[in-house]
Design a protein around this nucleic acid. Structure first.
Lengths: 227, 227
DNA sequence: CGCGCAATTGAGTTTCGTCAAAATCGGTGG
DNA sequence: CCACCGATTTTGACGAAACTCAATTGCGCG
């Protein structure tokens, strides 16, 4: 697929304190024979798809990835967005097959861990063991929020919730992606997504600073959500 | 709250092979000082609510429990149904607070495990460790299915998916619960829920055998879903 | 400049929510 | 046993929201 760089230096990783494996010692890393590798993927690239046999899980160093599932009638649904410090592909620890299609939305840097090493180490290293549970719970909490905030109520409320969720941390700004993706996150059509965005712009709930980059009126959006 | 019976005999538990803790040895059980207890709850009873500090997780021996979350505007949403052999309250292993309101839908038998014991044992017993991961993944897979099948598409499709999901294993029959609960599972109003059920009855997609007990035309329902 | 794709906008239809009224069910007490 | 009550469910009528189909605009790129 892509060029995976071997011999990654995990001990000196910049995001190590927040990443999975933060609790590993130098000795632990020595036990991993199959090395941790690193890769950068560009928008549109496919990391894995439903049913692929997976021997790896991943942590996201930077970027954004969508997890997609397909319905019997063919429509696709985005069930989660995976961003920096999130973990991807936990399911292979249990089932050995991926349950989603993972597609890159924004240029993404990933670290790839061999599944077997994670299983081994998680049994001897209590910190990793705890981290793993925390990551699993994080995904689950996220899934619940997805359901309550992005899949319930009027389209406007859902869109407002999505915008707030996409806000860059610190600033009241966000980048958007395609109407199609927004639709498949909120379970609405492209047209409704577009109309809702247009209306929000008209109401000054969001203002385009640069192409595809918006300032958000958080208070206004929250008023919509609470209404 | 209710009468928790102590000194439960886990080693001879009838559902032990499918339950969490199936991999525990007699010695493991001896390490649990705080004993495993058992309780039966009746419909409407509350097991825990959002934000409660939790020192226990639970396995369901029989029955049905709904996990509810509330939206900013006050409406409630059922995010999962927990049934026999499922685990409840995994989140306290990570966060020490429950993230849902757990309400009994049908008379339910539960086993209650002290959180600390589970954490300890999961670090020494690889089978429990694996079981825990499997349970977490199970909840996550369920959450994804909830999103794609019960929260996407037309009300009829969602209802058809719900009916099929409620089917008793083996038979093409199911019990229903209140229209209000169905609405808050599918994110539709009670009226729409009622109308959809009425229409399904008219189309013979479901037939009432006994009060609140229906035979399902699975093929017909699946045709609706795929349409 | 013009091509292709995505986004927007419009018009008409369907679905779903809202409000209100009627029907049904279960339990209680006469 | 039956009448009555409250709660739930069902049904109807109407309006609002969202979907569909179609046309137009806007934008990036060769």
């Amino acid at each position: 697929m892509q060029a995976w760089e071997g011999d990654t230096n995990c001990l000196n990783c910049a995001i190590r304190s927040t990443a999975l494996f933060s609790g590993l010692t130098a000795q632990d890393f020595e036990k991993i024979h199959d090395p941790v590798e690193q890769v950068t993927l560009k928008p549109g690239e496919l990391l894995y798809k439903v049913g692929d046999t997976g021997h790896h899980l991943f942590t996201v160093r930077s970027g954004l990835i969508k997890l997609v599932q397909y319905l019997p009638d063919g429509t696709q649904r985005i069930v989660r967005l995976v961003k920096s410090t999130d973990v991807l592909g936990l399911e292979v620890l249990v089932n050995s097959q991926y349950e989603h299609e993972a597609v890159v939305l924004r240029t993404t840097e990933l670290c790839r861990y061999p599944k077997e090493a994670v299983i081994q180490l998680s049994q001897t290293n209590p910190v990793l063991h705890k981290d793993l549970m925390a990551q699993w719970q994080r995904a689950l909490t996220d899934a619940d929020a997805w359901l309550t905030k992005l899949s319930t109520g009027a389209a406007k409320k859902r869109m407002a919730n999505l915008l707030i969720r996409l806000r860059e941390k610190g600033a009241d700004e966000c980048y958007l992606f395609s109407r199609e993706d927004m639709g498949s996150i909120l379970s609405i059509t492209i047209e409704t997504a577009s109309r809702t965005i247009s209306e929000f712009k008209r109401l000054k709930l969001m203002t385009e600073i640069r192409p595809n980059h918006f300032y958000l009126d958080i208070e206004g959006l929250e008023a919509i959500i609470a209404s």
